[in-house]
């Protein structure tokens, strides 16, 4: 029973995936080292009245497995990507997920590198400068 008032409310489902991997960065992180990254993927969708789900969990699990985990789990990220800074990784992972038809409604991704740092990418970050909304 969706009342008109209810259309103002949205539902976001977030799943967290573990991604242990190696990397090094220039500067004081230049020794090859590892992190158990947490990848938090947020999907935005209406709650289906019959199933009560905004997304079947397996769809997101399969997508993340195919696009992120199978490519990077347990790997040296420097051999696979042009940058391994958290800012780049969060955006790149989000770009890969949203590049698939199943990931069109993924509206954000957070990459927790350590307990002290976290990188957040939003779907709007991926837009070309001319497509970005302007804030006044």
């Amino acid at each position: 029973m969706a009342s008109s008032e209810e259309h103002n409310f949205s539902c976001h489902l977030t799943r967290r995936y573990s991604l242990p991997a190696l990397h090094k960065l220039s500067g004081h992180c230049e020794e090859l080292h590892g992190h158990e990254y947490s990848v938090e993927v947020t999907y935005s969708g209406a709650i289906d009245e019959v199933s009560g789900l905004c997304l079947k969990r397996e769809i997101l699990d399969d997508l993340v497995q195919e696009k992120i985990l199978s490519a990077f789990y347990g790997k040296n990220l420097n051999e696979l990507l042009p940058s391994t800074a958290g800012e780049f990784l969060a955006r790149e992972f989000l770009r890969r997920l949203r590049g698939d038809s199943r990931g069109k409604n993924i509206q954000g991704l957070a990459l927790q590198e350590t307990k002290k740092n976290r990188f957040i990418a939003k779907a709007t970050d991926l837009l070309k400068p001319t497509e970005k909304p302007t804030y006044k």
């Binding site: 489902l13 799943r15 967290r16």
Partner: peptide, 11 residues
């Protein structure tokens, strides 16, 4: 659990 959560409301 710590690997799955839902936000509902004005987001």
């Amino acid at each position: 659990n710590e690997d799955l959560w839902v936000d509902y409301g004005k987001l």
